[in-house]
Design a protein around this nucleic acid. Structure first.
Lengths: 190, 190
DNA sequence: CAACACATGTAAAGCGTTACATGATTCT
DNA sequence: AGAATCATGTAACGCTTTACATGTGTTG
């Protein structure tokens, strides 16, 4: 049996609520899944073919618009089983890659005032995203997705995570901006 | 002028406090830099050659142990300049990849009791790491690195970030474990 | 004398991004 | 008539991981 990549499991996750076309999946990989896993269209189509070959998904074809046939993909029983088994396996921890924190390590080499602006700009960006998350979270809660038995509880729980994570990131950016202001005023007193 | 990859800048960051051999850099890419950026040895040696070709680093060679000569790398003036310029550029936001949050999206397909164990195991792992970070953070603070003017303030600030981020992750894992316990008891009442 | 730390490199394969390619239907 | 949306794929390139390859000096 062919081993399934994490991307493959990501597609099984996207399909867990019901059948979708490849094009639908490309869009669903944005919100909220795109907040913690992304894939380009050019990765998705070949992976769907691999899942199908492994018997984890199947598809109906019908003649949609355009030069090729439209395919509607759905999980097979084997696909649901593989997904259920993967979900409870201990997660493989991947090395995190965070450019901003990397920069912070060498912050002593930067101009304090310019570096301060960088952190403030980032805080503003995260603030805007947080507002978006808050809205989505409230929408799901209004639909009853805050109940663990609700089919959308999973999506709700991922947003709950974002609502915990983003404020601490913003707080950290502002803390650093404060420290850098302190440093700048110390180096160039009035 | 050749463009420098993020890996290249990561190596410039590692070298910002002083000269190191490739082997030293491999080790420094673990703690604390490895918490937000990693690279394998097989990536590091070719990248050092590229940086050297671009004039951003230079090296002295001496005959160390083993079949090849040991090289001690250091930043050039151009390297320091390139690093300083990069540090204040707005960071390229990379798509985050978090397997655990991805799994959470499809949590409805999993066995609640087994899924609960997965979250508790993860919380325990993060708890252990947090204890390690707390120790390193305290050590740096004792050396005065909590002052923005201290040369190790950058390393201190990255640990400060971990100390904000990890508790919220642990809290979220425990919250999910609680919800899943609720669900399991509801589906199988006494 | 065996294991480990020091030290530098190459090769192959997989993963991910950007760009290319095609064409029908629907909306403005 | 032109733009946007629906729809599926391929090609080329770059980044990352895993594995291979070599050999000395130090410590138990």
């Amino acid at each position: 049996m062919a081993t399934v990549s994490t991307l493959g499991y990501a597609l099984l996750c996207v399909l867990h609520r019901g059948p979708l076309t490849g094009y639908d999946i490309v869009r669903r990989m944005r919100r909220p899944i795109g907040y913690y896993w992304t894939a380009q269209q050019s990765q998705i189509y070949p992976e769907l073919a691999r899942l199908s070959a492994a018997g984890l998904t199947e598809h109906e074809t019908d003649s949609g618009p355009g030069p090729r046939q439209r395919k509607t993909h759905r999980l097979t029983a084997a696909g649901r089983e593989a997904l259920a088994e993967w979900l409870v396996r201990p997660a493989v921890v991947r090395p995190p890659r965070d450019e901003t924190v990397l920069r912070t390590y060498a912050l002593a080499m930067a101009d304090p005032a310019a570096m301060r602006e960088m952190y403030l700009a980032e805080a503003a960006t995260y603030e805007r995203q947080l507002a978006d998350f808050t809205g989505q979270h409230a929408e799901l809660a209004a639909r009853g997705a805050d109940d663990p038995g609700h089919p959308e509880f999973g999506a709700y729980a991922t947003l709950e995570f974002a609502l915990l994570r983003y404020p601490s990131r913003i707080q950290w950016c502002r803390w650093l901006a404060d420290r850098l202001a302190q440093l700048a005023s110390r180096n160039a007193p009035p």
